[in-house]
């Protein structure tokens, strides 16, 4: 099974997209949240997705690791298509890291345990190996001294950096960020964004749902604007901010940039 998919990958292209979404449609009950989404993400590409609330941007990235199930279209992650096959879903999930708006750290485990649980039980690393990797990544997000504490003892910004480290401990190929700074106090947004910028510089493929336009401008290769479940516009940041093609984008930008 894995061999055939691998073979297919090699035949397709020397540098195939790591995520390929075709004609994706999704409904919540009768509500049509995602309409005909086509999106390809290449390796090491950084994509920022923005749009008004309810536009489907979070739902879109949650579909990529099957936290939401889509009804039509296809999502192929690293050569494997997302189906109902639980084993395949878990394999894809372990290769796709995710950072949530509310951190979702495990409050009953220490920071270090948060980071090593999945590597030990899913990646089958030894405890020593997992500890070493976790400490290495906690150092990268600049909180190695908090390793023995519980999440509840940390500030919001520190918790979100732990969440980033926890996702990185699985050594993912893609990182998804679902409004990672929306729940933070203004003083803490900066430290999280800095961590994300460093991660981007290291060459990680990233899909980031955010309203931090400064971050988009600095890091993104491509900015995607969504509204009403559709991709309205996608462009490189310079053109996106300076001369947007669509009126809807213009209106959105004027509303979030002039307050």
């Amino acid at each position: 099974m894995t061999q055939t998919t691998k073979a297919k990958k090699v035949n397709l292209d020397t540098n195939p997209p790591i995520i390929k979404i075709d004609k994706l449609n999704k409904w919540f009950g009768k509500f049509h949240v995602l309409k005909d989404i086509d999106l390809q993400v290449n390796k090491t590409e950084k994509i920022v997705i923005c749009g008004p609330s309810g536009s489907g941007k979070s739902t879109l990235i949650r579909c990529i690791n099957r936290l939401e199930v889509h009804q039509e279209g296809s999502i192929v992650v690293d050569g494997t298509e997302l189906t109902d096959d639980v084993k395949q879903i878990n394999e894809i999930r372990s290769d796709v890291g995710m950072v949530f708006q509310h951190f979702n750290l495990f409050p009953h485990l220490t920071v270090l345990e948060n980071c090593t649980l999945a590597p030990i039980w899913v990646r089958k690393k030894s405890k020593m190996e997992a500890d070493e990797l976790a400490m290495d990544l906690l150092t990268k997000v600049r909180i190695p001294d908090q390793a023995k504490k519980y999440p509840g003892q940390l500030s919001g910004g520190q918790q979100q950096r732990v969440a980033i480290a926890r996702a990185l401990c699985m050594q993912p190929r893609v990182m998804l960020f679902d409004e990672p700074t929306s729940a933070l106090d203004p003083e803490m947004i900066k430290e999280v964004l800095e961590t994300m910028i460093e991660l981007a510089e290291s060459g990680m493929t990233m899909l980031v749902v955010t309203h931090e336009m400064g971050f988009a401008n600095k890091v993104a290769d491509r900015v995607i604007f969504m509204d009403e479940g559709q991709i309205v516009e996608q462009n490189d940041p310079k053109n996106f901010f300076n001369n947007p093609k669509s009126d809807r984008t213009k209106l959105f930008l004027s509303q979030i940039l002039n307050h």
Binding site: N90, F100, F106, H108, V122
Partner: peptide
């Protein structure tokens, strides 16, 4: 709900999610 989602996103299956994350809490 975020606890279950976070453990799912790490690739943990049903029993591991419940044994390590959901049930202890």
């Amino acid at each position: 709900k975020g606890q279950g989602e976070a453990s799912m996103a790490l690739g943990m299956g049903y029993w591991r999610r419940n044994i390590f994350i959901i049930l202890p809490q």
